[in-house]
């Protein structure tokens, strides 16, 4: 399963019209130790660019923006008790939420792994 990335450092992985979303390893490292994750309500309709979750580290609060249009179908509730997962395994156990795509054809503005790596090189 290949990952795509946004300029705001979310990753998205799509399988059978379901997008799984999290934050990149670069993002978790920039944020520092995560101590709280605010998850959205299920079945909420979201549009691309809308804030869907908040990740709080010891340093700052950061919003997670949806990279896609759709309906929230699942949240990673284990992050509430173990927010550290976002640091330890941001693209595995630390996934944040799943969205059922309303328009699977309409994905745009995403980068593949190689382009994302180039992009973050340009930031640091």
């Amino acid at each position: 399963m290949s990952l795509s990335y946004t300029k705001d450092h979310e990753w998205v992985s799509i399988s059978q019209s379901i997008a799984t979303i999290g934050i990149s390893d670069f993002a978790q490292e920039q944020l520092g130790e995560v101590v709280f994750v605010e998850l959205p309500d299920l079945e909420r309709n979201v549009t691309k660019g809308e804030s869907v979750a908040v990740v709080e580290s010891v340093k700052a609060a950061s919003e997670v923006y949806s990279p896609v249009d759709g309906i929230i179908t699942e949240c990673n509730e284990s992050l509430i008790e173990e927010p550290k997962r976002l640091n330890l395994d941001p693209i595995g156990n630390g996934w944040i939420l799943k969205i059922a795509l309303s328009n699977p054809e309409g994905l745009s503005g995403l980068m593949d792994e190689t382009r994302y790596k180039e992009y973050i090189q340009g930031i640091v």
Binding site: H9, E10, S62
Partner: peptide, 8 residues
């Protein structure tokens, strides 16, 4: 993700 610090 929002707000990753900028350098001044």
């Amino acid at each position: 993700m929002g707000s990753i610090e900028e350098n001044a």
